[in-house]
Amino acid sequence: MDPDTLESRLLSLLTSVAPDIEPQNLDPARALREQVDFDSMDTLHFAAAVSKTFGIDIAETEYARLASLRAAEAFVRERLAAKG
């Protein structure tokens, strides 16, 4: 995988906040909560990492947009585009 793609950057953020998941088995389209038992603390850690890395604000009500890797990718792309 190209290390610079948005998906692989998100994947590496995900494994940094949840080092106990096995990324090669992850389906990017499936919800993290279903797939790897993401709980509210994992969600917060992931949102914090995404917010910091990409310099974007994420409201509490927007955590749901990080539900899967694919969803997170679309969300970050949208926010980065809005930032210009």
């Binding site: 917060l44 914090a48 910091k52």
Partner: peptide, 11 residues
């Protein structure tokens, strides 16, 4: 939480 950056929010 509304006024805080993600890493400082409470659950």
């Amino acid at each position: 939480n509304a006024t805080l950056p993600v890493q400082d929010r409470l659950i």
